[in-house]
Simulated assay, not measured.
Amino acid sequence: MTKDLKAQSKRLAARLEAIPSEIVAEIKPALIASANDLANVAKALAPEDKGDLIASIEVTAPGGMTPAYAQGGGKSQAQVNQAFVTVGNPDQCHGHLVEFGTDPHKSGGQFEGTDHPGTEAQPFLLPAIRLTQDRNKRRIGRAIGKAVRNAAKSGGGDA
C-alpha cells in the first residue's frame, strides 16, 4: 500500500468513526436488506444440483462474525457499517472453483497423479453483484439521506 493510500485510508477511517451512532443504526436495515438481496440473487444463479453450495451462501449483519470457510477456516468481523455475503463453510469450500473454474491439472488426494481436465467457470456471485449493485446503492443512499435528515432535525448526534 502506498504512503498516500495509507493516509487516505486513515482519513476515511477517521471520518467514518465520526459518523453519529444514530445514523449508523438507521442505515443498518438497508445494509442487511441489500446483503440479503445479493445473497438471494446469488443463490438463484448458483449452479448446484444438491444445494450444498447454495446453502453455504450466508449474510453476516453489521457487527457479526462470518462463518469459518475456505482455506484456514478464516473468519472476519463486519464493522458497524458493513454487511457481508460469504460463500462456503468448513464442509463446502469450493465456491471460488465454481465461480472461476479450474485449469487442467494433476489430481492429488485419493486420485493422485490422474489428469483432471479442469472445469468451466459457472459465475454466480459476480453476476449477482452486477445485477443488484445499482438497486442496493439506491437503497443505502436513501437510508443515508433519511438518517442524516433525521439527525439534523434532532440536533446532531454523538459525534
Rank of each mutant, 00 (worst) to 15 (best):
M1S: 10
K3P: 13
L5A: 13
K6S: 13
K10P: 14
R11T: 11
A14K: 14
A14V: 01
A14S: 13
L16D: 03
L16H: 01
S21G: 08
S21D: 15
S21E: 07
E22M: 14
I23C: 07
I23S: 10
E26P: 11
I27Q: 03
I27H: 01
K28C: 02
P29M: 04
I32W: 08
I32K: 09
S34L: 07
N36E: 02
A39I: 11
N40M: 10
N40I: 11
V41P: 06
V41A: 04
A42D: 05
A44R: 12
L45Q: 00
A46H: 03
A46W: 05
A46D: 00
D49P: 03
K50C: 08
G51A: 00
I54K: 14
A55R: 12
A55V: 04
S56M: 01
S56N: 06
S56R: 04
I57P: 06
E58I: 11
T60W: 15
T60S: 10
P62T: 09
P62H: 00
G63C: 05
M65V: 15
M65S: 06
P67K: 10
P67W: 06
P67G: 08
G73N: 14
G73M: 03
G73H: 09
G73P: 13
G74L: 15
K75Y: 06
A78P: 10
A78S: 02
Q79I: 01
Q82S: 13
Q82T: 08
Q82W: 05
V85T: 10
T86F: 02
V87H: 03
G88Q: 09
N89P: 11
P90K: 00
D91A: 14
D91W: 03
Q92P: 01
H94C: 01
G95S: 07
H96Y: 15
H96D: 09
H96T: 08
L97Y: 04
L97V: 00
V98A: 01
F100S: 07
T102L: 09
D103S: 08
H105F: 04
S107M: 07
G108P: 07
G109W: 06
G109R: 12
G109N: 02
Q110T: 15
F111E: 11
E112Y: 12
E112D: 14
E112P: 07
E112L: 08
G113T: 04
G113F: 03
G113N: 09
T114C: 04
P117S: 04
P117V: 08
T119G: 14
T119H: 00
E120N: 13
Q122H: 00
F124P: 14
L125T: 03
I129S: 00
R130S: 12
R130L: 11
Q133V: 04
R135S: 15
N136V: 13
K137P: 05
R138M: 11
R142Y: 14
A143G: 00
K146F: 08
K146Q: 12
A147F: 07
V148S: 00
A151L: 09
A152D: 06
A152N: 01
A152M: 13
K153M: 11
K153T: 13
K153Q: 08
S154Y: 01
S154H: 09
G155L: 13
D158Q: 02
D158M: 07
